[in-house]
Design a protein around this nucleic acid. Structure first.
Lengths: 196, 196
DNA sequence: CCTACCGATCGGTAGG
DNA sequence: CCTACCGATCGGTAGG
């Protein structure tokens, strides 16, 4: 019985993983439960033994990914790091999410509009808190003269959005090494913030 | 009769404009022809007196917007501009598209996946040409020592993607002035490319 | 531009 | 986990 529970859990994992890939490729509304079932290898009706609804799949993908972002944000709240280092860590984290957990991260960033209440409000609130923490790091870096006096709000938008461009890296053969992508983006974005 | 033709044309314009707004808000697949008809103020069946299909609406929105981008790219191909100036002009153009023609530009950038063949291939080809021209400007700027030696490919991705972040500017009350947004983004992104 | 309606497909349930 | 099926909604057409 313990085994059957584990089996069920891993089947649910499979469903979430395939759903994430399909939501990324075609978007949430354009992905049908029948397509998803076929990808998993069962009939559409059988999906409902593992999940409650199509919406629930989207919710699970988005909130577990958002949680990983929040965990990283809390982890860099250290007095030993200056604000340039914290910003660099944020850039590297988001680049790595986009490179290594492409489906989940892409779905969170692009498909959250299809969440229904109360999940929609929950998500946008979490995101507002997250970007405010990021802006606070940038504002602190500027006031301590570590960074140029740009608007923290605009710098935050620029950094977080840049990462979305890595979508095209995935789509176009990945000729450039992942590590090279990451280092170049850090160089460009941190370079635009530094004073010298 | 000339009048009725003009009337028809402007009604089609209205349909495209409302469709663009709805595709941006809810995405192409999640927007129904009945929703669109209601927004225009007619019955769903009546839409088909002005357009051929739902797909055609998406095609028109995307290709006319892509064309505006191509026109601007050709316009900055001047010997009087150095590569930093060309890059700055590109950044300002895309920021302005995102600020002033939000619906059309957003739909082009985010909903092109829902184009069907041959339009899908047509679009991705146009886009490949466009980004190659942009990379050529960056590569030339680097070889002439106007810019730091970043990878043109990565810098192009960073610049074009940053602009997408302005989506949140629209969503969050527009407290910052448009001109301030534009200048700050130019400062950050060009600052990350300059040598000094 | 509308009424009336089409076949297809959607998310999801019943019952085993 | 499947077969059989539901009501709702989809894009689109006929005919006026």
């Amino acid at each position: 019985m313990a085994k059957s529970i584990r089996k069920k859990a891993s089947k649910k994992e499979l469903i979430l993983q395939r759903a994430s890939a399909m939501f990324r490729e075609k978007g949430f509304p354009a992905t049908s439960m029948r397509d998803l079932a076929e990808s998993v290898g069962i009939e559409a009706a059988s999906l409902y033994n593992h999940i409650q609804s199509k919406s629930e799949i989207l919710q699970e993908i988005i909130f577990r990914t958002a949680n990983d972002c929040n965990v990283h944000m809390d982890r860099i709240d250290l007095p030993s790091l200056n604000n340039i280092q914290k910003t660099e860590s944020l850039i590297r984290f988001h680049v790595q999410m986009m490179l290594n957990r492409f489906d989940d991260y892409y779905v969170m960033v692009n498909e959250w509009i299809h969440l229904t209440e109360p999940y929609l409000t929950n998500f946008t609130t979490q995101r507002r808190n997250y970007v405010q923490k990021m802006e606070a790091i940038l504002a602190d870096g500027i006031s301590k003269k570590e960074m140029k006096p740009v608007l923290p709000y605009v710098a935050m938008l620029t950094i977080l959005s840049s990462v979305r461009g890595l979508e095209f890296w995935h789509r176009s053969g990945k000729k450039v090494l992942a590590q090279t992508m990451e280092d170049n983006m850090v160089n460009h974005l941190i370079g635009g913030l530094k004073k010298n």
